[in-house]
Amino acid sequence: MSVEQTIQQKLTVQFSPLLLKIENESHMHSSDRGAESHFKVVLVSENFVNQRVISRHRAVYSCLAYELENGVHALALHLFTAEEWAEANGLVPKSPNCAGVGQ
């Protein structure tokens, strides 16, 4: 199973997402083709209701602790409740390239 598939499986089990998008952004960060080291995660879950942003991030980091200790270098997290996602109109910031890439 790929790292991306593992992340998807773990987040699905832990957070019962209404929406889950995982994008491998390793190519934007001086990684070799096929690398799985940088990911963008958009996760909409009712588990986040009444949780501060830092608590949401900690919950995801805890869920993915093994991956973060074994090759995943970075996670760009965009974590929403259903209400927040509706207010955001489904828009998430575009991730910047890593310094030195595409220059």
Rank of each mutant, 00 (worst) to 15 (best):
H73N: 06
N97W: 13
L79Y: 06
H29Y: 02
E67K: 02
S37P: 04
Q14E: 14
M28G: 02
L75T: 09
C63P: 02
N47Y: 15
Q51D: 12
S16G: 09
V42S: 08
Q51A: 13
L68E: 04
P96D: 10
V49T: 13
A99Y: 04
A86C: 12
H73K: 11
G71R: 04
A35S: 06
Q9F: 15
E83R: 12
Y61S: 07
V49P: 00
Q8S: 15
E83Y: 13
I22N: 02
E46F: 12
F15Q: 00
P93M: 10
T81I: 11
A99D: 09
V72K: 00
L18V: 15
V44T: 02
M28D: 08
H73A: 11
Q9W: 14
H78I: 01
R33Y: 05
M1W: 09
V49Q: 11
V42P: 04
H78R: 09
V3C: 01
Q8D: 14
A76L: 11
V44E: 04
H27E: 06
D32C: 06
V49M: 13
E4C: 09
K94W: 03
V3D: 00
V49R: 07
N97D: 12
E67A: 04
Q8M: 14
E67T: 02
H78Y: 10
L68P: 03
S31N: 05
